[in-house]
């Protein structure tokens, strides 16, 4: 608490403070903490019907670890996440860099580049569902005509994953570009000028100078996008592939949904929720430690 911040504490009534916080705390207690703790508890039960079940200890978790289906989901999710985050960040980096380099129309370019942020993921899903439809999609047709390649993602598991990844990257670019352009804008012009005067080529500049300078934002985005990819694929999968073909796109989140609401295995699904929580907690922790480190070294 710096001196500046303690000067801000001009009100003294404790009950007033309590009243101001009460709505938020009440909602958080009921709709966040309670369900979260319940999830933990439920994960130790086997339930068929909500409200009655038997304690099974860690059996759900053991089943998860031994389940081939779950391991498959894990692999699919990791692949999906890694590919989406890498592609998305790489493309956003290039695009943000180009926008930063452009000397005119920057506002136009920025808006045109970030609009996918507003696009609902479901819309991305159905639009691509049609455009790359193996039988009647114009994009698949064009690809086949030009290269002879049949983009049969409805029957080929790997291609299905690719299709979903493309949709996710398309939608997710906007968010990353917003953050990266802000970070680029904070790099002093003098550095750009100095590099240009030295005749340093464009991509050298990008990877040797800018990327290190904006690295805290990159780290932040990697963490956020990773967390998002773990959860956010759901609408896409539901609309495009329903987890198939043959579970090739059955990400953890979709698997959880199926077990909870289609198969009614609430305890088992809760255990999956807790595992997801574990991932998120670890990732957030990493983010905190890394930004701390950069803060010490005076990162951007």
């Amino acid at each position: 608490m710096t001196e500046q911040h303690s000067r801000l504490q001009v009100f003294t009534s404790n009950w007033q403070a309590a009243a101001l916080l009460l709505p938020t705390l009440a909602l958080i207690a009921v709709f966040l903490y309670y369900p979260f703790l319940e999830t933990v508890q439920l994960s130790f039960y086997q339930l068929r019907v909500l409200g009655s079940g038997e304690w099974v200890g860690l059996q759900n978790y053991v089943q998860l670890f031994e389940s081939g289906a779950y391991r498959n989901s894990l692999v699919v999710t990791v692949l999906f996440t890694a590919a989406t985050v890498t592609a998305s960040l790489f493309l956003s980096l290039i695009i943000s860099f180009l926008i930063h380099e452009a000397n005119r129309f920057t506002n136009l370019y920025l808006v045109a580049a970030i609009w996918p942020y507003a696009m609902p993921i479901a819309v991305a899903g159905i639009v691509l569902d049609f455009l790359i439809n193996p039988r009647i999609g114009v994009v698949t047709w064009a690809i086949e005509v030009l290269t002879g390649f049949q983009f049969a993602w409805q029957t080929n598991g790997a291609l299905a994953l690719v299709a979903v990844i493309i949709a996710a990257v398309w939608q997710g670019l906007g968010y990353s570009i917003i953050f990266m352009t802000a970070a680029f804008n904070q790099v002093p012009d003098s550095i750009t000028d100095a590099a240009k005067l030295d005749g340093i080529g464009r991509f050298q500049r990008l990877f040797r100078i800018y990327v290190p300078l904006i690295s805290p934002v990159l780290v932040f985005l990697i963490v956020i996008q990773t967390i998002g990819a773990f959860f956010g694929g759901f609408a896409l999968i539901d609309l495009m592939t329903s987890g198939g073909p043959s579970n090739a796109t059955n990400v953890l989140m979709f698997n959880l949904y199926q077990d909870a609401f289609l198969n009614q295995r609430f305890g088992y699904a809760s255990a999956q929720s807790i595992v997801l929580f574990g991932f998120v907690a670890v990732l957030m922790y990493v983010q905190l430690r890394v930004t701390d480190r950069y803060a010490y070294y005076g990162g951007a």
């Binding site: 916080l21 709709f31 966040l32 369900p35 999830t39 409200g51 959860f231 909870a260 957030m284």
Partner: peptide, 25 residues
């Protein structure tokens, strides 16, 4: 209290969806 509020960032929907559904029911 502030950290208790921030901590809820670790509780996105998928992590609480089953009991939340039950609660609503």
């Amino acid at each position: 209290i502030f950290y208790a509020i921030l901590f809820t960032l670790l509780m996105p929907l998928p992590v609480r969806i089953v009991p939340l559904y039950q609660l609503m029911a």
